[in-house]
């Protein structure tokens, strides 16, 4: 464990808890894409299957439970909680995210480190996490409301990915044979997606304009 990874995990946990807490408190999910939240729930469900079979550390297991619990709770709120569901922007959140799931699954069947059930699903979860933010970014551009709820959420998610890249650089130089191309490439692609968002977010903030 290194400071970059710990900071990354904390930022990631904070991003999902901020979102869950806000939805719970103001009973609204305006501007939030439920499709992105469903993709994240699938990412965690397929990545943390080993939670029952292998034990890494208390920290690891605890964090997995936090991510699983928060992502499924957010989906539940947005889909089944009456007050929150009413504020969901169904007309604008139209990204066909099941195609993302399908293409990531096919890609995982083609490119993986080992062809075992757990390993293919784990690789699938990496590919899916890289593109999971797309429905949210599309919704953001459509509704143009970069209100604090989604802005902070995406900012923290981007921060978590950036810290993870620093973590991989650190581990590469401190641990022999720490080479995981798939993790690195998908992590880089995901961070680049955020970089694009940050560029426009910063511009809209600097010029005090609506996000375009």
């Amino acid at each position: 464990m290194n400071i970059f990874r710990l900071a990354g995990d904390m930022t990631h946990m904070f991003s999902v808890l901020v979102l869950l807490l806000k939805i719970h408190t103001i009973k609204s999910c305006a501007g939030v894409s439920v499709k992105t939240q469903e993709l994240y729930a699938i990412v965690f469900a397929t990545r943390y299957l080993d939670i029952f079979t292998s034990f890494v550390s208390i920290y690891n297991t605890f964090m997995k439970l936090v991510f699983l619990g928060s992502s499924f709770s957010i989906v539940w709120y947005m889909r089944y909680h009456k007050a929150v569901h009413r504020t969901y922007d169904r007309e604008q959140d139209t990204f066909r995210h099941w195609f993302l799931v399908l293409s990531c699954l096919l890609l995982a069947l083609l490119i993986h480190e080992k062809f075992t059930f757990l390993e293919v699903l784990w690789t699938f979860s990496l590919y899916l996490e890289a593109v999971a933010i797309l429905p949210q970014l599309v919704l953001l551009q459509r509704t143009r409301n970069i209100d604090n709820l989604t802005g902070q959420y995406i900012f923290l998610l981007g921060g978590y990915r950036g810290l993870y890249i620093l973590n991989w650089i650190y581990r590469y130089f401190t641990e022999p044979h720490f080479v995981h191309w798939i993790t690195w490439i998908t992590g880089l692609v995901q961070t680049l997606l955020y970089a694009d968002f940050f560029y426009y977010y910063f511009l809209s903030w600097k010029n005090n304009k609506k996000l375009n």
């Binding site: 990874r5 995990d9 990631h12 080993d50 292998s54 890494v56 690891n60 964090m63 997995k64 991510f67 480190e113 075992t116 757990l118 390993e119 784990w122 993870y164 973590n167 995981h180 993790t183």
Partner: peptide
């Protein structure tokens, strides 16, 4: 065992 080593990250 190698699964854990490669996937000790969240």
């Amino acid at each position: 065992k190698e699964f854990d080593a490669a996937h000790d990250e969240l």
